Simulated scan of single mutants.
Amino acid sequence: MRILVTGTAGFIGAALAQRLLDRGDEVLGIDNHNDYYDPSLKEARLARFVDHPGYAHRRADLADASAVNDAFASFKPQRVVNLAAQAGVRYSLTNPQAYLQSNLVGFGNILEGCRHHAVEHLVYASSSSVYGANRKMPFAVEDAVDHPVSLYAASKKANELMAHSYSHLYGLPTTGLRFFTVYGPWGRPDMSPMLFADRISRGEPIDVFNHGNHSRDFTYIDDIVEGVIRTLDHPAEPDPGYDAEAPNPGTSNAPYRVYNIGNDQPVQLMRFIELLEQNLGRSVEKRLLPMQPGDVPDTWADVSALRRDVGYAPGTSIEDGVARFVDWYREYFNR
């Protein structure tokens, strides 16, 4: 298939592009290579496959409607995976405009491209952050998600609503994937696994928010990519059992679906740090601090809908995943 993937210099996008190329798909990648974090890491991810004969790359911003339209018109993708976005909860507290441009304007341009070029299926990244102030555990796609606690979370919920309107109005099959705390080789340096590994390896103290009482449904990168591919190959269809008098937020009478992709096994943050210490071979001083604005204490993915519809659920243990991450970290940074 011809598949357009946005964010291919990013953590998940690069891993997905490689998998699609390995199975014989033709991939057009779009990325704006911004400097939200070290661009050299983005270039290094991209260097692993940018010369593949099945791959073409465009440096463009999704908020640039003409650039997005040109990519659709020239490449004529059959399916689209939108992973490009301004990421990060804490950054959204001080730089809200970046989220409005990338996550709302940019996603709107992707929807328009799909609409006008008869795309068979759009899969897009949502986030576990949409569950916001919810305290019912585990988080299920059937739950209401109307109380976001950051603009980042609100932008991802908005993406789901925008996608549904296009599924309803234009029959565009769309699937939103709520990723839960993705980690592993080539991960983002603004996320806790890389931040902690850096400080542990240098013998510097780490900041542990919520006094270490967080738990997270850490999900290994390979499991995330497998979930993306399984859903990409399973275009959304109208739910024949959808009841408009008792609506299910995860389905619709339009070709629309939302799934959680998480490990379904929340891990205490202190346990995650302990595993990093063990694999890096040194302990670290922990500065226990209050919870930060926009953060949530716990996440836990109910993946029953994903398992039911596409026959898949993540399964990499936290022990195996952290060990693989540390092996990559030591090799890449020569530490």
Rank of each mutant, 00 (worst) to 15 (best):
H117F: 14
D243N: 15
P148R: 03
G54E: 07
Y312T: 13
V119T: 09
L20F: 02
A44F: 01
F218D: 07
H234P: 00
C114D: 13
V89D: 00
V258G: 03
A158Q: 11
V149G: 01
G203W: 02
P297M: 14
G315C: 10
M162W: 04
W328L: 07
D70G: 11
G24E: 13
Q292P: 01
A65C: 09
P193R: 00
R282H: 07
P205I: 11
T175Q: 06
E226G: 10
N334A: 11
A246K: 14
D217I: 06
P138D: 08
E43L: 10
V303G: 13
V267Y: 03
R271K: 15
G29C: 05
L169R: 15
A47N: 08
P290E: 03
N253V: 08
R202C: 05
P247C: 08
R271D: 15
A44C: 05
G311D: 12
P148H: 00
K42A: 00
M191F: 08
G10E: 00
A14K: 00
P255W: 01
D264V: 07
F49K: 00
S150W: 00
S215R: 14
A85H: 08
S252G: 02
G262I: 12
L276H: 03
D51Q: 12
T94K: 06
M270G: 01
A118E: 15
E237D: 03
T251P: 05
Y55Q: 01
R230G: 15
R79Y: 04
T299N: 09
T181W: 06
N248Y: 07
V119K: 04
N32D: 10
R324C: 04
D295Y: 00
S127C: 04
D70N: 13
N109C: 04
M162P: 03
V310F: 03
F180I: 04
N34Q: 09
W328A: 04
L151A: 05
F325G: 08
D320C: 05
V303E: 14
S126E: 11
Y131T: 08
P185F: 04
D146Q: 13
G311M: 07
G29W: 03
Y259H: 12
Y312K: 14
Y242F: 15
N103Q: 09
S165K: 11
D38Q: 12
L289D: 01
N248A: 06
A244F: 15
T6S: 13
A84L: 10
L151P: 02
M291R: 01
V326E: 11
P193F: 02
S167K: 02
P193A: 02
V5S: 05
Y332C: 06
G294P: 00
A9C: 07
Y332Q: 09
W186T: 00
A17Y: 00
M1T: 09
G321H: 06
H116A: 13
F196L: 07
E142C: 11
S129Q: 11
R202L: 13
S283C: 07
Y55I: 02
D25Q: 12
K156M: 06
I200E: 01
R59K: 12
I3G: 04
P96V: 03
P53G: 11
A125T: 13
G24P: 12
A85L: 12
S40K: 11
V5M: 12
V322A: 11
A73K: 08
E331M: 08
A73D: 15
F139E: 13
N334I: 04
D51L: 13
A47T: 10
V141C: 14
T8A: 08
G176S: 15
G212L: 02
G29V: 04
H214D: 06
A153C: 03
E142L: 12
D320W: 05
I273Q: 02
L21V: 04
